[in-house]
Computed example of a mutant assay.
Amino acid sequence: MNPSLLLSQFDYHLPPELIAQSPPAQRGASRLLHLDGQGEPHDKMFAELPSLLNPGDLLVFNDTRVIKARLHGQKDSGGKVEILIERITQPHTALAHVRASKSPKAGSRIRVADAFEATVLGREGELFELEFPGRVLDLLDEHGSTPLPPYITHEAGQEDDERYQTIYAHQPGAVAAPTAGLHFDQAMLDTLSARGIRQTFVTLHVGAGTFQPVRVENLDEHHMHSERYSVSAETLDLIRATRAAGRRVVAVGTTSVRALEAAAQQPDQTGPLEGDTRLFITPGYKFAYVDALITNFHLPKSTLLMLVSALAGMEPIRRAYAHAIQSRYRFFSYGDAMFIEPSRP
């Protein structure tokens, strides 16, 4: 990492009214800002994406499924508690963020949704280890709510349960959606297939840490949150074949980028490759597997803004974001999309 990189280099002013509070009426009815290989932005619609891809290109999607990770309860003392599951560790245990007026102690119990009790086993840093009286996933499905990002101001409803989930979500475990994938409907996937654009999947369970602000000015001092990923041997074979044929590996979302680049760093490339990754991608990073990216617009001073700046260049991203703000694009999870083609040497 370049030690001269500073948090303030990744700041920008976003008018609050540009933060999308709800999805478009139809999946895929979003705008698409195409950042070409010369760093120039072009205004398009997401429906035009197939024309920007070539036969033989490989789209890599993240098939994680968002769990109903937000729970409400109260301590023995009667104090209100909000629980946000970060990771399910065993069928009956999970690590969670717990918000309460006073942190619960090991051995204490939390009455959840007036339906069951969770036991606090201990702490791991900022997270609490909780034990549930049944399968965590089952209890979340019955009593939890969809964990919308902090910048979305309404409580999650039935529409969010459907639309804050990709149509190909398969592996439960994420507490935030891989939002670039929210734009794809089945008709778009079929159109891409008919054009000879191949598709494959990785899994990265997005954690709540994706919304945590970077708190240090010198990025060398930032400690990246950990997320679980898996890349199959079949996907690795497809990546090698795609690149050998001179075609592009196009990641759908920054989470797919993190999964692919984490896998690329493992010494044994036979696959399947899986584990926890704390990979922090900043400008200067050399991408091993990813040639282009479909993504949404990211928060100021976020690690995701740093990642797209690493792929496209800091100045092209600055110009593209300034253009998007001037052109009134919709930002963040329910917002519009970008297709980033990095400049070629």
Rank of each mutant, 00 (worst) to 15 (best):
V206K: 01
T119M: 13
Q9V: 00
L304N: 00
H154Y: 12
T277M: 08
A233C: 13
L32C: 13
T93N: 04
S22E: 13
I83V: 09
D220M: 07
H143S: 05
F46D: 05
P267A: 06
V216K: 06
S51F: 09
F61Y: 12
R99T: 14
T89M: 13
R215I: 03
E86K: 10
L5E: 03
T235V: 07
Y151V: 08
L58I: 05
A47Y: 05
R163E: 10
T210C: 13
I85Q: 03
A263E: 03
I281P: 00
R87T: 04
Q74L: 15
T203C: 03
M224K: 05
G78L: 10
E124D: 08
R111A: 06
G122M: 12
I110H: 03
P104H: 14
T270N: 15
H323P: 01
V257N: 02
V250N: 00
H143T: 09
F128P: 02
F201L: 04
A244F: 09
K301V: 04
P150G: 03
V98P: 14
P41T: 10
L273F: 07
L32P: 03
Y321C: 15
Q171P: 02
T282E: 03
H92V: 15
E159C: 08
R319Y: 05
S51H: 13
Y164N: 08
T295W: 00
M1Y: 00
L182F: 11
S4P: 06
A47T: 09
L204D: 00
H225E: 15
L273H: 01
L53R: 02
Q90P: 02
H205G: 10
H13I: 09
R318H: 07
R328K: 15
E155S: 15
S103R: 11
F332N: 06
P213W: 14
P16K: 11
Y329K: 06
K105T: 02
A320P: 11
R99W: 09
Y168F: 10
V252F: 10
P133G: 14
Q74M: 07
L182G: 02
R65Y: 04
E274P: 00
S108C: 09
I167Q: 07
I83Q: 01
K301R: 04
Y151C: 06
A263C: 15
D185G: 08
V250E: 00
D138W: 15
P41C: 04
Q165K: 09
R319K: 08
Q158G: 12
